[in-house]
Structure formats: structure tokens, C-alpha cells
Design a protein around this nucleic acid. Structure first.
Length: 419
DNA sequence: TCTGGGGTCCTAGGACCC
DNA sequence: TCTGGGGTCCTAGGACCC
């Protein structure tokens, strides 16, 4: 059996832990630059604020219903996530952290356990120890655990936030209830195609012909079908080193000058280099892109990317920043209002298995230098040491007007209680 | 004026090899 | 008139997840 434990409205719930006055009130969390709604409390959902809603378009509605708005505080969410995961890890020998707010537990050899009450114990402990409400779905396969979780979330009173699928009757009942477009692995495109074919529920999907599913939805669709039929084909996944690493950002305002974008792209390359060193990889290829604001139909649009094969594998901030700047020079054009840029590194080799090139190689002096930089930035805070080509004055270049404190990760921002 | 960021996997088709 | 068979590698595009 698998359990899927999923935090309810995670980012909004994190904010509420430190603002208990907001419990049962509408809360939303915005994306970087305070752009879109990326998390909503149930109350905010009820008002009719959709996922991804541009904040400026919903300003009236947010005001009218007195919705509490927060800028994204990823330092807080990341730390709260670790706390939740460390509690969950106590409940099963094997666990897969599936995303920042959900984890699969593998409940093998739990035959003697009453899984319903086991789920409830997990649910109660997480909320008691962290303040984060969770829902638990338990079923014989991962896809069914996802479905069970949806039921637990949809009917919190009736299920006490835990739903167990442990018979074929319950499996079929759940699948007949679950709309096809809400099935894990069925996105917008497949959802549309299936509805056109009169496949309206997860159950209908399990009745389809294997060959049709494989042909139209690839092997992934077929695996999903079997998993929903109760034949486990999806197992826990072990964390793998990343195959691509990206740092991309929208700008707070439009940039028109090369120097402004160069500073951003340098910073993104340095960030990619840090992430590469963190997983002990070097990259052989880099992509740099820039583009104007696609939503602004009144401005001339420009969008380009360039893929650069590096002369040698590296994870040095200095070298990657240099390559990124050279790439940017090739694609930058004057006369446009740029809104977004990014650096993506790919094609990795392990740090300790670098192929030596004939003519040019990564500067070996950078290895101890980067180690020193990482150590200093780890202990004294991010970006204490930067390249001169980065902005040396500003650390944060985003609009974040409603940022809450980093209650759990910065001693200066710890919660204070007034008596 | 204002519209996020970061990932994964699969498949078909083209280019190439012998 | 008639033009083989069996591979690999790479890339772009499409789909999905949170």
C-alpha cells in the first residue's frame, strides 16, 4: 500500500501558522514580483480566485473580500516543508518526497495495522507539531493514493482528512467519482481528447483499450491506466541528480540597456553554478534566453535563445558567468523592452570525471576558490561574496511588497510575542 | 503599470553508419 | 519496370508534474 500525504493549500497554510488570526479567513500567496496567485486558502478559492490569477486583475475582488495577500516567502516554505517531511519519515521505512508539499509513504508489511487510524495519527501529528493541515490518501498504488487523497481533501469532515481505498468496490467508487481532468497524469490536452471520446471519469479511462491508450498517450498513459486498475506499476522513485538546472526571472520593470541585462544574466549564471556545485556536477552546455513582455501587444516583441557548447565542463561561477555574457552579446539587440531572461545549464558530467580537453581547460584554481566562496556564503548568508559583474548593492530585485518574516530561518526575524 | 519558476519523460523523424 | 536491411544518435516538439 501507498500513502500520499499532501499539505492543504501549503503556502497559504505556512503563512497562517505564524498568523493564527488569519485562520478561516481568505489568504492568497503571490508568485515572484507579486505577479500571480500561486496559493489560495479554501476561503479564497470559494470567493472565486483562480489558480494563476494575475494579482492586478483581481485587485478589486481581493479588496472587496478583505483577502490577506502575501508575497512568496520561499525561505519559510522550504523550512516548513522540511519539518513536515521529517515527521512523515518516521511513519514508513521508505518515503518519496514528491514535491515541496507532498510525499508518498510505502506501507509494505503493514497488514496488521489499521491503516485508517494510522493515517489519522499521521494527520493529527503533522498538524499538531507544525501547524500545517494535511490530507492523507491510502491505496494499493500511487495513482490510486493520489485519487484517495483528493477525496480526503474534498470531504474533510466526512473523511477526517484520511481516505483509504482497500477494496475493489471502493476503488471503483472512487474512480467513478474522479473527473478525468483531475486524474494525476492527465493534463489539459489529454483531458480534452478524452472528454471528446466520452471518457469523463477515471473509471471510464480504465475501460479504454490498452492499444488506444499506448498509441495516443504513450507508455506513460498505459502505466497510469494499470496503476488505476490496482496493478502497481509506479514505484517510489529515488532522488536523482538533476539533468537540467535553470535560473530564470522576470524583471520588476522593463530593461532596455545591455548592461542591465548583463548583470541579471551574470547573476543567473552564478546561481546555476552554485546549484551545479551543490550536486557535484559540471555542465557542458548552456542556454541563455531573453525576451520582451509577451502580454504587451503594444510593444514590439523580441525573443531569442542561444545554446552554447562549452569548450570544457565546468561549475565555476567565474567561467559560467563569462560564457553567459558572451552568449548574451550574440542575442541582445538594442531597442527592445526586455522583461525576462534566464540561464539554463545542461549536459552534465560528474565533478570528479571531467574529460580533459586538448587546448583549453577549466582553471584548476577555481576549484578551491569556489569552495571558499560557497563556505562563506553558506555561513554568512547568500551572496555575501559576488562577482564584480553582479550588482554589488542590491541583493533582491523583485517586487515583494507583502513579504512575511523568515520566522524559522533567521534569528532576527523570529516571531515575537507581545504580552 | 502590473501576468512565476523549475523540472521530467516520451516519440517521431532526420541524419548518419555499415 | 525494378532500388535492402539494420542499426545509433540527436533534436524538436509535445505532454505532464508541482
Amino acid at each position: 500500500m501507498f500513502a500520499l500525504v499532501d499539505c492543504n493549500n501549503f503556502y497559504a497554510s505556512c503563512e497562517r501558522v505564524f498568523r493564527p488570526d488569519l485562520i478561516r479567513k481568505p489568504v492568497v500567496v503571490l508568485s515572484n514580483n507579486d505577479g500571480c496567485v500561486i496559493a489560495r486558502s479554501n476561503e479564497a478559492k470559494a470567493i472565486g480566485i483562480p489558480m494563476g490569477a494575475p494579482a492586478f486583475e483581481y485587485e478589486m475582488l481581493l479588496k472587496k473580500y478583505n483577502v490577506h495577500v502575501f508575497s512568496a516567502n520561499f525561505a519559510l516554505y522550504g523550512d516548513m516543508s522540511q519539518r513536515v517531511m521529517s515527521i512523515l519519515s518516521e511513519y514508513a521505512p521508505d518515503m518519496e518526497i514528491y514535491s515541496i508539499d507532498e510525499a508518498f509513504l510505502k506501507l509494505d508489511n503493514f497488514e496488521k495495522f489499521d491503516l485508517q487510524s494510522y493515517g489519522q495519527e499521521i494527520q493529527r501529528r503533522v498538524v499538531k507539531w507544525t501547524g500545517i493541515p494535511v490530507s492523507v490518501g491510502i491505496a494499493p498504488t500511487k495513482a490510486l493514493a493520489k485519487a484517495a487523497n483528493r477525496i480526503a481533501k474534498k470531504f474533510p469532515e466526512k473523511t477526517e482528512s484520511v481516505y483509504l481505498i482497500n477494496s475493489d468496490d471502493k476503488r471503483i467508487k472512487a474512480l467513478k467519482w474522479l473527473k478525468i481532468e483531475d486524474v494525476w497524469g492527465i493534463g489539459r490536452q489529454h483531458g480534452k481528447r478524452l472528454i471528446a471520446k466520452s471518457v469523463n471519469t477515471a473509471y471510464d479511462f480504465t475501460q479504454l483499450d490498452d492499444a488506444w491508450v499506448k498509441k495516443n498517450m504513450s507508455i506513460m498513459g498505459l502505466r497510469l491506466k494499470h496503476d488505476l486498475q490496482g496493478v502497481p506499476v509506479l514505484d517510489l522513485e529515488v532522488p536523482q541528480p538533476k539533468k537540467n538546472i535553470a535560473t530564470t526571472r522576470s524583471f520588476e520593470k522593463n530593461y532596455t540597456e545591455f548592461e542591465q541585462i548583463k548583470e541579471r544574466v551574470t547573476t543567473f549564471a552564478v546561481s546555476c553554478a552554485e546549484k551545479l556545485r551543490h550536486q557535484h556536477s559540471c555542465c557542458n552546455t548552456m542556454m541563455v534566453f531573453i525576451h520582451t513582455n509577451g502580454h504587451r501587444k503594444d510593444l514590439t516583441q523580441y525573443s531569442r535563445n542561444i545554446v552554447v557548447k562549452l569548450p570544457f565542463p565546468t561549475n565555476s561561477s567565474i567561467e559560467l558567468a563569462k560564457f553567459a555574457t558572451q552568449a548574451l552579446e550574440k542575442i541582445f539587440r538594442n531597442g527592445y523592452c526586455y522583461k525576462k531572461a534566464g540561464v539554463i545549464v545542461m549536459d552534465f558530467t560528474p565533478e570528479d570525471q571531467k574529460q580533459i580537453a586538448i587546448f583549453e581547460n577549466s582553471n584548476p584554481k577555481h576549484i578551491p576558490l569556489m569552495q571558499a566562496v560557497d563556505r562563506i556564503n553558506d555561513s554568512f548568508g547568500q551572496q555575501k561574496i559576488k562577482l564584480a559583474s553582479q550588482d554589488l548593492h542590491k541583493v533582491w530585485k523583485m517586487k515583494q511588497e507583502k513579504l512575511s518574516q523568515r520566522y524559522t530561518t533567521d534569528i532576527n526575524e523570529i516571531i515575537s510575542i507581545h504580552v
